[in-house]
Computed example of a mutant assay.
Amino acid sequence: MQIIVVAVGKQRPPFVDDAEHYRKLLSRYARLEIVEVADDAALGRRLPERSYTSLLSLDGERLDSLAFSRFLEQRRQNGRDLCFVIGGAFGAPALPGIDHRLSLGPLTLPHQLARIVLLEQLFRAHKILAGEPYHY
């Protein structure tokens, strides 16, 4: 299974180093692709076909780390790539073909920070699935 993150905007300091850190950590567990688009209008054009697509949204499903790891395992068992969509500063527009909505919590996060939180949770979920300690 490949994990694709489609996000509005180019990652900028101070978040670049954090994104690279989690990309390296995740490389042991999963194939990760990050696709950066210029604006919300470009999101729909960059969604991979036939992937299971989850839109990060305030009104999405709220999962703790264990439940998120089970969510990932279910996607893996289905044999489809998994795509996460992160909209711009004002959230993502309505997009066709969204299979799921995921909330990172009730706080409003800058979209660049939301990307880091998602990458960290993907890493943590893979550690859980591998039966490795995940609190550090």
Rank of each mutant, 00 (worst) to 15 (best):
R124T: 13
G105N: 06
D40F: 01
A89E: 12
G9F: 07
Y22A: 05
L113M: 13
I3R: 04
F68I: 12
L102Y: 02
V35I: 15
S103F: 03
T108R: 10
L109M: 07
D18Q: 10
R101A: 12
E33C: 09
V117I: 14
S54Y: 00
F90S: 14
K127E: 10
Q112S: 14
L55W: 06
P110V: 07
P48T: 13
G79V: 10
L119K: 04
D39T: 12
P106C: 06
A30G: 02
K10V: 12
D99K: 09
D81G: 13
S57N: 12
H100W: 10
V5Q: 02
T53V: 15
V8P: 04
E49W: 00
Q74M: 13
D18K: 00
R50Y: 01
L113V: 10
I128T: 06
L25P: 02
N78V: 01
L104W: 02
A92I: 05
L26T: 00
R12C: 06
S51R: 14
G131N: 09
S103N: 07
E61T: 14
L95C: 09
L109N: 02
V6K: 07
V35F: 00
E61F: 03
D17K: 09
L102K: 03
C83T: 15
F90K: 13
I3E: 04
F15P: 09
L26S: 00
F123R: 02
D39L: 07
D39M: 07
L109A: 04
P93M: 03
G9Q: 06
A30F: 01
G97P: 06
K127I: 01
Q112V: 08
A92M: 05
R50N: 13
I3Y: 03
F71A: 08
E36P: 07
A38E: 13
E120P: 10
E49V: 12
A94T: 15
F123Q: 01
S65V: 05
I98S: 03
V35Y: 00
P106Q: 14
C83M: 03
L82M: 11
L72W: 01
Y134C: 04
I98E: 02
Q77C: 12
L43I: 11
I98M: 03
T53I: 15
G97A: 05
M1Y: 04
L63E: 06
R12H: 08
V8G: 03
Y52S: 08
H126C: 12
K127R: 15
R75Y: 00
R124V: 11
H126V: 03
R45L: 06
L63H: 10
Y29S: 05
L129T: 10
E61M: 12
Y52T: 10
F68M: 11
R76E: 13
I4Q: 13
V8Y: 01
C83L: 04
F71K: 14
G44N: 08
E49R: 15
L47N: 02
I116S: 02
V85G: 09
D17I: 04
I34V: 15
A41M: 05
L66T: 13
M1D: 08
R46L: 00
A67K: 14
A19I: 14
R31G: 15
R45G: 14
V35Q: 09
V5I: 15
H100T: 07
A7N: 07
R75V: 09
S27H: 04
G9N: 09
P13T: 11
L82F: 08
K127Q: 12
L102G: 09
I34G: 08
V35K: 12
G87T: 07
D59Q: 14
G9E: 09
